[in-house]
């Protein structure tokens, strides 16, 4: 009983405590780089598209709001032919970023994405792709993956031996 009265009193005391509310949009607070806001597609340190169209972000997305299609350039490098996020469905959970093996898809601290027309919430690749590396500066998936792409043949990835010569009998 006493504790109930005490609660009442403690709560009442807050009448004289200043509110913590930050009055967005007049006031804005500094957000951490890992804040989960608007999603971007980044480029690798060489300026190429990072996304390899593996579809992992799409499959992990709880509201299924990512759709893309894989295609290849003439040298066998995978990239998305189209990449679409329906932000009117996105719950900004960040699972896509966690699933992405290439650091291509990243969430940013920009969250004011309100639109009067819902159709404008549909972002295509040209709206998503930025010119930089985003939060992760050095990673380049294709430098590690053992796949030949333009400018890199077999054996030139990190930690690779040159291709085997099958015709040799030497051990």
């Amino acid at each position: 009983m006493l504790s109930q009265l005490r609660s009442l009193w403690e709560v009442l005391k807050h009448t004289f405590v200043k509110a913590d509310t930050i009055e967005y949009p007049e006031q804005r607070r500094e957000l951490f780089p890992r804040y989960r806001g608007r999603i971007i597609l980044t480029r690798d340190p060489d300026g190429e598209e990072r996304c390899v169209a593996c579809n992992l972000c799409a499959v992990v997305c709880p509201p299924d709001c990512i759709a893309l299609q894989k295609t290849e350039d003439e040298n066998g490098r995978w990239y998305p032919e189209f990449f679409r996020i329906n932000f009117s469905r996105c719950i900004l959970c960040g699972l896509c970023e966690e699933a992405c093996p290439t650091h291509a898809i990243q969430l940013t601290p920009d969250f004011d994405m309100g639109e009067y027309d819902r159709q404008n919430m549909v972002y295509e690749k040209q709206h998503l792709l930025i010119d930089g590396t985003g939060k992760y500066h050095d990673y380049n998936f294709y430098r590690i993956a053992g796949m030949a792409i333009g400018g890199k043949t077999k054996g030139q990835a990190e930690n690779e031996k040159p291709p085997v010569d099958v015709k040799t009998l030497l051990p």
Partner: peptide, 8 residues
Amino acid sequence: LALWQDRL
């Protein structure tokens, strides 16, 4: 309620 919860 907001007042007592330090909100606006």
